[in-house]
Amino acid sequence: MKYPYFPGCTLYTKAKKLDDAGRECSRRLGFELDELPDWTCCGATFPLVNDYHIAMSGPTRILADTKDQGGSQLVTLCSVCFNVLKRTNVVMRTDEERRQKITDFIERDYHGEVEVLHYLQVLRDEIGFEQLREKVVKPLTDLKVACYYGCLLLRPVKEIGLDVMENPTIFEDFVRALGAEPVDFPYKIECCGAFQVVHSMETATRCSRDILANARLNGADLVITTCPLCHFNLDDRQPEIRKGDPRFQTVPVLYFTQLLALALGLDAAELGFERNLIDPLPLLREKGLA
């Protein structure tokens, strides 16, 4: 099976390892991510003002390109891109007036024909978590994982439709399929502080501290995420959190595709962990995974 694939800007730069591991795993699981031949930024923010359409021109062009190349689905790995593309697609499907304005503006014909999928949905709905379990070559036994969803993968639930709002389980089911143990983690849907980190680091530090401390409190060995910005905040804020609270125990933060890659037998040395501020390798060695 071949899926049109939209990596997004950050997966070419900061979150290269989210992309690399995702592509390699897809090959091992028997599906292909076929990158759109030319793509632009999705805009990274879905516009919420009713008569503001320009921010939807980017994602609509991406969706129209997918359709023109004969694609009926479009897969993304990044939570931000997923959120923007999915919500834009809902507008294109359901709001005649806005669709007309946007398609006239970018001079393209698009009616929301493409289905936007997150990589996790491909694993759950197309491959199946049971089948995934059978393809695991190195089960992640004894590894306790905090599944951090954040905001954009879930909300708003009506438009995104990936899982329920207050207690989603797709990520936990994924982790179980890999042989690891998901921990009970009430902060899994809290915000990490997002782009506020750029000008108010204290805000991002506070939000990240609450999330990570809650993960630790519930026995997590590591945290996984799908979002490059969450990854940045959660990983990068830890020295600062420690300054404020010397008792704080650091915790490695991984992209979910890196965890998947480990379970599918990729060597930990190839997964780019040198880019993590909090090095997961000592933990992985201790668990016999590296």
Binding site: L48, V49, R155, P156, I189, Q196
Partner: peptide, 22 residues
Amino acid sequence: VSCETCGTRCPNGIKTAPVMDV
């Protein structure tokens, strides 16, 4: 930051994030 937690929980179906954007 438009995390949409408020809007998902509002008993009256008001989404705060679009109001902030406006």
